[in-house]
Structure formats: structure tokens, C-alpha cells
Amino acid sequence: MIRRRTRVAAEPVMTGPAPIVAAPIVAASGIHKHFGALHVLKGVDLAVAERELVFVIGPSGSGKSTLLRCCNRLETPSSGRIIVDGIDLLDRHTDINAVRRRIGMVFQQFNLYPHMTARGNVTLALRKVLGKGRAEADEIADAALARVGLAEKANAYPLELSGGQQQRVAIARAIALEPRVMLFDEPTSALDPELVGGVLAVMRSLREAGMTMVVVSHEMGFARAAADRVVFMDHGLVVEEGPPAQIFGAPEQERTRAFLRQLDH
């Protein structure tokens, strides 16, 4: 069952922790994930409040991407509980397609549909999932593309766009569905350095519009500037979490310190 929610008026919040509301948008608890013999997540908890930007960092293989992918059930946890926007993702009776359209996801490799234009990429789910007519879907898509600064590229095919532009189309594809939360899986890792800025700028504007976001990324500068909370994961566990100033300035755990030291080199 999907409950209709009225949106809280989006006043821009630039800094400071988001107000903690009673029910978190994402509440994952005791998440375990096995891939065959590999124990990737070993009992992870993650709660994300409305309008909060949570940054998940950690070495490769730490399970951070898997955790993110569990949050829209692209991976099904072996055990644990995940509630997103009040809906139990692991309940057999949950219509996963209905939930997923409220959870936007952006991938490292963009994953645009190459046989469709930028507008076509954005309108597909609007038309097939939300059942909107072509004209209305086009209108929403063009507005979403404008939000990511690509209004003039609506008719371009993915191969005609730079990596950064492709990633911004992918963001438009997700936000056009007006998700309650956005998941970013290393959104800038596949980009040439000069293209990273444009994508981060779009993410910052989403943040300022009040979007709830979970970001797996190595963009520590962005984390420092924009995150409400940083979660450090290693070996399938959350080692430490806290405001960016604490995690980057005075980490309590030796493993966190070691990881951050490595990044400086």
C-alpha cells in the first residue's frame, strides 16, 4: 500500500543538520547480505531522516554499494529489515515497483538507454509506470532536464553527450518521478575530473531543494561541504558515523583514521 504524503514546503537548507523527524525516510536495521560464501554486509543499521544528506564512505569491498542497492531492493538482503517511507521493502506483499518509483537511483555508469533521447530516457517511466500521456510526460521531462541544466539537450542521444551530461540526464530521469529519497552510487567515479563539478552542482541544488539523499562516493570535499552525516563502513560493518566535521576532523576509530590518511596520499 502506498500512502499519499503531502510534501513539506521546500525551504532551502544550506548547512547544519536537518531537523530530525519522528519517522526516518530510510530505516535499515540488522542488514546482512551474503553472495554465496561471501559475507558482504554483517548487520548494518542505517537511518536517514527527511531532508538529510547521508554520505557513505569506505574502502572498496566495504559493502557500501551493496547497502545502497539494498535500499531499493536491487539486492535483496539475506536478513534484516528495511523500511522506506513507511513501506516494508522485504514484505512479500509489497509491490516493489510501486515503491521503487519513490526511490530515485543514480548509478556509477549512468545506465542511460542508448536507443532513446535524453527526453525519452526521462519520459519512459513517467509514461509506463505513472501512466502519463505523452504531452504531460514531455513537459515533466523537460522541466527535469532544465533542473539539471540540460534543457537544450532534450533531443540528444546519450552517445552525443559527455559523461557528465549523461549523468545529469540520469539524475533528471530519477527526479522526474518526484522520489522521496535519492540514492547515489558513486555518481562521479566514472567521470573525467573536469566533468565532476557539473554533477556535484546538480546534487547540491537538489540538496538545497530539500531532497533526502544517500550518497556513496569518494568526493570527500563534497561530503565535508554538503553532508549532514558521514557513515564510514569497512568489512561490511559501520565503523563510525557522525557529522563531517567529526569524521574528517577528529575520527574516533583507528580504522577511520587509516582510511582517511590513505585518501590524502
Partner: peptide, 21 residues
């Protein structure tokens, strides 16, 4: 690529819709 299927599913398209479109 598998990623395109994941992207489509993440927007709420069903497996059949993803296959078709």
C-alpha cells in the same frame, strides 16, 4: 548491459516492461 535493466527497474518499471521497452 545489466546496468540498463537495473536503471529501468529502479524507476519502477516491471521486468516485462523493462524487457519490452
Amino acid at each position: 548491459p545489466r546496468g540498463q535493466v537495473e536503471a529501468a527497474r529502479s524507476t519502477g518499471l516491471s521486468a516485462a516492461q523493462t524487457m519490452t521497452w
